[in-house]
Amino acid sequence: MSTLEGFEAQLRDLPKVSLHDHLDGSLRPSTLIELASEIGHELPSADPESLQETFRSNANSGDLLKYLEAFAHTTAVMQSAENLRRVAREYVEDLAADGVIYAEVRWAPEQHLAGGLTLDEAVDAVQAGLNEGTEAVEEQDGVIAVGQLISAMRQADHAEEIVELALRHRDAGVVGFDIAGPEAGFPPSRFASSFTRLAQQMLPVTVHAGEADGIESVRSALVDGRAQRLGHGIRVAEDIALTSGPESRSKTGDGGEDLIEVELGPVATWVRDRQIHLETSPTSNLQTGAVSALTGKSPSEMPHHPFDMLYQLGFNVGVNTDNRLVSGVTLSGELAALAEAFDYGLAELADFQVNAIEASFLGYEEREVLAAHILEAWQ
């Protein structure tokens, strides 16, 4: 076992928080193969390890279309209540095996109606699976809680309907709302009335922004989307000017250049000063080209990620997986990779867990209890 693998194993036993993880990007390869066989859907491979490697290779190809190919396969098998329930149950069990004690899982019910389900039936099926998974973890003396984030697809223009769906289920497992899908060309301003409705009903919102589009997308998420958190959000770094020279040194997220002065633009200032949580997904951000868009380096590697620069400047950052199957990652693995890239110890990695739980859509008392538990365990 390598040093990195040993550290990842150590992290697996510590309590962690996941706020940005897509249900349809996190199936077990073996489950995907079994369900695809049942419905006659052809996959790139019928061997779990080979299938995982195909998805991982596509994700690392630098081609976003190849990265997205996996979702045509996963959503194809998630069109019945039975299959949604199973995928959700296993999702919880797999998170718990990685040491996650609180998670918010996002998914778009409108993409799971081909088998005849209604939107409400789809949400109920996923919630039933989440409940079963939680109970199974508790039976093994584990602890985990999972809430649903209901996503509307930006390109589909069903936001008003999906908002009402989320509101109907807010007391039955739904903890918040999200918009996903193509970021460029579909700004949150297109759905301003839907976000107003959510604000009036006081259901919290996270918005995918600052991943596949730049700083104006982040601005729209904050202004039009009233986002309490930013999904990824790393391109807020476009609004940060660095002046380098020999007088002082700091990590910049791009090789540790010398740093004299940092100037934050208005959007970056707002995000930092208001402590808007950034739901970063380091490996996914590299794979989808979000980091390359910032650095001009293609392919980019973990030391190029702006995560450390943002952390050093006081931004509220968290660590997530985005799509565990597609990217071939775990939350423990992501933390270990960041620790290797930026020389973090357990104290820094614990900070990211506390940031995440405090930015979660749980109630105040629940957040306080879990934050205390996390700090005690990580110490």
Results as ranks from 00 to 15, higher is better:
Glu53Phe: 00
Gln312Tyr: 02
Gln200Trp: 08
Ala237Glu: 09
Asp213Asn: 13
Gly99Met: 11
Gly133Ser: 04
Gly185Cys: 13
Tyr344Ile: 10
Val329Asp: 04
Leu84Asp: 02
Ser217His: 13
Pro306Cys: 10
Ser61Leu: 09
Ala350Gly: 01
Leu68Asp: 00
Leu349Thr: 02
Lys297Thr: 14
Val87Trp: 02
Leu349Arg: 04
Gln228Trp: 10
Phe342Ser: 12
Pro188Cys: 06
Glu366Met: 05
Gln79Tyr: 08
Ser248Gly: 08
Ala103Gln: 01
Ala156Lys: 15
Val291His: 00
Glu340Phe: 01
Ala371Asn: 08
Ser2Trp: 00
Met153Asp: 04
Arg85Met: 01
Ala336Gln: 03
Ser284Glu: 01
Arg28Met: 11
Gly233Leu: 08
Ala159Ile: 11
Leu331Ile: 13
Glu121Phe: 05
Ser244Pro: 04
Gln275Asp: 10
Ser193Tyr: 12
His232Ser: 09
Tyr67Ser: 03
Ala359Glu: 01
Thr283Trp: 06
Arg324Tyr: 00
Ser250Val: 00
Val317Asp: 08
Leu149Gln: 07
Arg272Glu: 07
Glu93Val: 14
Phe177Ile: 09
Ile240Lys: 02
Ala377Asn: 08
Leu119His: 09
Asn83Gln: 13
Leu35Pro: 01
Gly185Val: 10
Ser220Thr: 06
Gln127Val: 03
Phe315Ile: 11
Phe191Glu: 03
Val123Arg: 01
Ala97Pro: 01
Trp270Lys: 12
Gln200Asp: 15
Leu11Pro: 06
Gly245Phe: 01
Ser193Lys: 12
Arg226Lys: 15
Arg272Gly: 01
Leu119Ala: 04
Glu368Gln: 15
Leu286Gly: 04
Gly328Met: 09
Ser26Glu: 05
Ser194Cys: 15
Ala227Leu: 12
Leu113Trp: 11
Ala356Gln: 03
Gly296His: 08
Glu247Lys: 10
Ala372Val: 11
Leu64Phe: 15
His158Tyr: 13
Arg367Val: 02
Thr118Ile: 09
Asn58His: 14
Ile240Tyr: 00
Ala114Arg: 13
Ala97Val: 04
Val262Pro: 04
Pro44Arg: 10
Val175Arg: 14
Val317Tyr: 02
Leu203Gly: 11
Glu135Ser: 13
Thr134Cys: 13
Gln275Ile: 02
Thr134Gly: 15
Gln353Cys: 12
Leu149Trp: 06
Ile162Val: 15
Ile215Cys: 03
Gly328Phe: 04
Glu257Met: 07
Ala59Leu: 10
Val174Phe: 12
Glu104Arg: 04
Pro204Ser: 14
Glu358Ala: 09
Asp308Phe: 02
Leu149Ala: 03
Glu368Asn: 11
Val271Trp: 05
Glu376Lys: 14
Thr321Ala: 12
Gly255Phe: 10
Leu23Trp: 05
Ala336His: 05
Phe352Tyr: 09
Asp308Tyr: 03
Leu32Gln: 05
Asp157Asn: 15
Pro204Trp: 09
Asp351Ser: 14
Pro109Met: 10
Thr134Glu: 15
Phe7Ser: 03
Asn320Lys: 00
Ala371Asp: 04
Gly181Gln: 06
Gln10Met: 13
Arg89Cys: 07
Met202Lys: 13
Ala114His: 11
Arg86Trp: 06
Glu348Thr: 14
His22Phe: 07
Ile276Gly: 08
Arg197Pro: 08
Tyr364Cys: 07
